[in-house]
Amino acid sequence: MNCQQAKPLIDPYADGELEAAATLELERHIHDCPACARAWRNLQSLKKTLKQDSLYFNAPMDLRRKVKAELHSPLGTKSRWSLPNWNWLTGVTTGLATACLALLLTLMLLRPSAQQQLTDEIVSSHIRSLMANHALDVVSTDQHTVKPYFNGKLDFSPPVKDLAAQDFPLIGGRLDYLDGRSVAAVVFQHRKHIINLFVWPAKEADSQPAMLASRQGYHVIHWSEAGMTFWAVSDLNEKELMEFARDLTGGGN
């Protein structure tokens, strides 16, 4: 190793981010090269200098108190920045809107709606399927295997589509129990993320995919199409889960 090769490695070496083989070579070079040895000592002392406690700004008590107060106040967690150039009128409007919203939220929180209960049920079902390692009763990436699996087990035939081309490959299916009935769980994967798609017949008007909730890091999207209700749940980020739902409903907005 020469100096030119050694130089860019000194920083990662000091940060403990250099792989073992390169570390050995660099150490040998530093041992023999006074210039690189000096650069290495300089860097170490700079690192020590920057780690002095007196350079670290601890949160003032005042900030701690303000944050706690806002978190605990009923209207607390709204952003104070949402309106950069507010005048008194927008101020009043925002105030009213916030009050209405708060009232609405309070009413909603007081009595969990049927939909919220169902959403909770869906998230729990998703988590259970991951924990018990029994996400799948039928393992197949072929829609013509997964779809017939449900025949005779359900009184309806869930649409099963493969989205491998859109990077949401089908990986299988299983029976699940939701909303007081047996439902189809069609399972997809996106990178390392599992998506459970729950399907059952429901008397609902057709609706576009809508993000319903995020609970414990899981997102839930719901839509209805042709007499079936669809619930997609995953720890995938909201944007990608929405793409999945759109791809499934035929794409587009």
Binding site: K66, T77, K78, A213, E238
Partner: peptide, 23 residues
């Protein structure tokens, strides 16, 4: 300090609102 408190406070409140996304 003044701006930093503003930023840290706003960020903490945002964090609370996005807490559902925290894995």
């Amino acid at each position: 300090d003044h701006d930093a408190q503003d930023v840290a406070q706003e960020a903490s409140l945002r964090a609370f609102r996005f807490f559902g996304n925290f894995r």
